[in-house]
Design a protein around this nucleic acid. Structure first.
Lengths: 189, 189
DNA sequence: CGCACACGTCAACAGGTGTTGGCCTACAGT
DNA sequence: ACTGTAGGCCAACACCTGTTGACGTGTGCG
């Protein structure tokens, strides 16, 4: 989308702002993450944020504008779909902060929830469509998977329910994979 | 907990504030719901909020201080546990706004997420303990159920994913009940 | 009736917010 | 080496926030 531009002298500052913003938005949500705090973390003046990202909303848009590289499912054994999907999501979730940010912010901020819907609409729904018995309800299947996966992320990474946060990654996969598998491949009840 | 006090002349105002607060917190979250907006909705002065609830945080505490009457599960057929639980949660969720409020707010506000943990710790865990094969992992089973139920609530009522919001109540039960049933009664994988 | 007090309003405060414009500085291109 | 300009800081803005205290007013009790 963004072709490689000429490198600018301010690139490191831009990156510092973006990094600090990712952190703050992820841990504080949209409203509590102040431009001043982000600037302080990045070691620069708040006005720099405005210069490079236009507004707080613009900065947030930059934070959530990331590619969530979905795994290639075309060669996968249909019976292992649940395991692959759950494993992938856990990894995605623990690798960087953007999904936590989206979940935290999507609950109160419209552009956050819009982006979340978009991610699941453009990534999860097509992925489901290839395996679902009846392509007509691929959206519903994907929504069920989203509910299960986002729910686990919510209790594990955001709300930090003790028992959910303490589960090993393998345990989460072992419990959730059959559910996800069923939501995608089982006949409608 | 709160014994019936002497009725006060200001009770209708108190109630108006509380109602407006429930609405605002549920739809806007904690930070965006301003004391001024709540007061305007209730048709009174912002200072009344402080007089009757001490602070914004105090008002919020009053909003989330509700009894979530959990169904009596002692006489239930263990095979119908999933159906009963999912049905109950759907009803609870659609009946009043408090759970939506908790979910919206729990994601950014500590006392919100604390209350959520408390609800699931004091209601769901004991309920699960009575049916789980090994009482030692009742907490884990309850967390799995919480993940599934909260996840569905999230996509259906908060994020408003189209396909999830459009599902009929019966469909949601039909899909989720087997999952919840398994999380509670199945042998550990 | 008179009076105390709960009820309610008004105006203001102190602090924090996103955002803006002016000014200095140091690097890059010629 | 000189200079235009991008990079950066400072101070201020207009606004909104939760919260407070002074000030009326009507109601219920003696």
């Amino acid at each position: 989308m963004t072709g490689s531009e000429v490198p600018r002298r301010s690139d490191v500052t831009r990156a510092a702002i973006l990094d600090a913003a990712k952190e703050r938005f992820a841990s504080d949500g949209y409203e509590r993450a102040t431009v001043r705090a982000i600037a302080r973390d990045a070691g620069i003046d708040p006005s720099m944020v405005m210069r490079y990202y236009g507004s707080k909303e613009g900065l947030f848009a930059a934070v959530i504008d990331v590619e969530l590289d979905f795994p290639d499912l075309s060669e996968i054994d249909p019976d292992r779909l649940g395991v692959v999907l759950v494993t992938h999501f856990l990894e995605l979730w623990e690798r960087d902060t953007v999904l936590r940010t989206l979940l935290r912010v999507g609950v109160t901020n419209e552009s956050g929830s819009e982006r979340l819907r978009q991610v699941f609409g453009t990534q999860l729904v097509p992925a489901a469509r290839a395996f679902v018995p009846d392509p007509a309800d691929a959206e519903r299947r994907a929504a069920l998977v989203a509910a299960q996966v986002l729910g686990m992320a919510l209790v594990r990474y955001v709300l930090k329910f003790g028992p959910a946060a303490d589960m090993s990654r393998d345990d989460v996969v072992a419990w959730l994979a059959p559910t996800v598998q069923r939501y995608i491949t089982a006949e409608a009840p």
